[in-house]
Structures are given as C-alpha cells and as structure tokens.
C-alpha cells in the first residue's frame, strides 16, 4: 500500500492541475476527468518526464501495470469520497 500511495502522490498534483483546467469548462465533468482521462494522462506525463523513477518500483518488485492499477483504485476511491464535496 505504501508503494502505491507513494506513486499516487507523485501523479496527484498533475492530475489535479489537468482536472481543474478541464473542469473549468464544466464542473459536471470534474469527477470523470479526475478518475479517467486526467489520471491516465498524468500517469503518462509522469512516466515520460521521470523515466528513471520506474527503477524505484521495479527494484521493489512492482510492475508498471500493477502500480497503475493500484493507484487507479486509490484515485477512484478518493475521487468518489471527496469530489462530491464540490457540489455541497
């Protein structure tokens, strides 16, 4: 869990920035962008700009697919729990 959370923390700021930028167009899109397009684009951007960081996770025995899946689940849970607050 620690490893997924660490990876997730690296991509969260990018995801939030992307989601906010796209969410300006329509707040209804905010949740969906955050849990899908924003998440996957930020994973791709992080992997592209910090190529060497993959060795941390590989040395701990984690494949990229496993990491992305784990952090996707964290992202979905956090999105589901916190983003409804936007409408309150």
């Amino acid at each position: 869990m620690k490893v997924y959370w660490f990876f997730y923390k690296q991509i969260l700021p990018v995801n939030l920035a992307l989601t906010t930028a796209l969410g300006i167009a329509s707040i209804d899109l905010f949740y969906w962008v955050f849990v899908s397009f924003g998440f996957f684009l930020s994973v791709w951007l992080y992997s592209f700009f910090y190529k060497k960081s993959k060795y941390i996770y590989c040395n701990l025995g984690y494949s990229k697919g496993r990491l992305v899946l784990g952090s996707f689940l964290i992202n979905t849970v956090l999105g589901t729990v916190f983003l409804p607050l936007l409408w309150i």
């Binding site: 690296q10 910090y50 060497k52 960081s53 993959k54 060795y55 941390i56 590989c58 040395n59 701990l60 025995g61 494949s63």
Partner: peptide, 19 residues
C-alpha cells in the same frame, strides 16, 4: 520472464533514479 518481479534481482541504473 521478468526477474525483477521475483524481488530476487535489483538493478542500479546509470543515472540517478531517486526523486
């Protein structure tokens, strides 16, 4: 196929990899 998944092999790359 992928020795690193077994956690029995570690690799120190040429360039810095810690954030």
């Amino acid at each position: 196929q992928s020795p690193y998944l077994s956690k029995e092999v570690c690799y120190l790359p040429q360039d810095r990899f810690l954030p």
